[in-house]
Amino acid sequence: MGHRTAVKNRTPLIILGITVLLVLTALVLVLVRGAVATPDPRSPEGVVQSYLTAALAGDQKQATALLTPQTSKDCPVGNVINPESMRVVLVSSITAGNTATVEVSITNTSASSPLDLGNSGYTDTFTLVKQQDSWSIKTLPWSLLACETETEVQP
C-alpha cells in the first residue's frame, strides 16, 4: 500500500513535468528556429515564396511582376490578404518540362475559443510556366490574389 500511494502521488508530478517540458521546448523552438524556408529563388518554389512575401507585405507591384501577363490582366483588384495570422507551407512541388505545380497548405490561426485553434487550413496549388528562363505564376489560389492593375469595367 505504501508503494502504491507513492506511485499515485508521483504520476501527477510526472505529467506536470512533461507539460512544462513541452511548453519550454515549443518556446525555444519558436524563438530560435522561426526562420522561413529558403528555396532557390529561381526555382518554382522560390518564385512562389517571393510572390507570397511581396503579397503579404502589401507590395502589390512586386507581386504582380511575378505573374504572367495574362494572369495579371484577369486578376481582380482590391483583394486584401490579412497577413497577421496566415501561414503557407510547401507540401509538394512537381516540375514537368516548362510547367510546374506547387502545392501549398494555407492555415489561418484564430484563437477565439480554446476549441477552434489553428485548425482552419486547406491545400491549394500554384501552377507556373517557364518563360524566357524564369518562372511566372499562371494560376494561383483566389485567397492569395493581390493585384494592382485595374480591370476594365465592362458596361
Binding site: 523552438l29 528556429r33 522561426g34 524556408a37 515564396q49 507570397l52 495570422s85 501561414r87 484563437a111
Partner: peptide, 18 residues
C-alpha cells in the same frame, strides 16, 4: 516551429494562444 513555412506566420501567435 520545426517546419519553416514558405511565407507568413512562423508560429509565434499560435504558441501565445496555446
Amino acid at each position: 516551429a520545426l517546419v519553416p513555412p514558405l511565407a507568413g506566420d512562423r508560429g509565434g501567435d499560435l504558441l501565445l494562444a496555446g
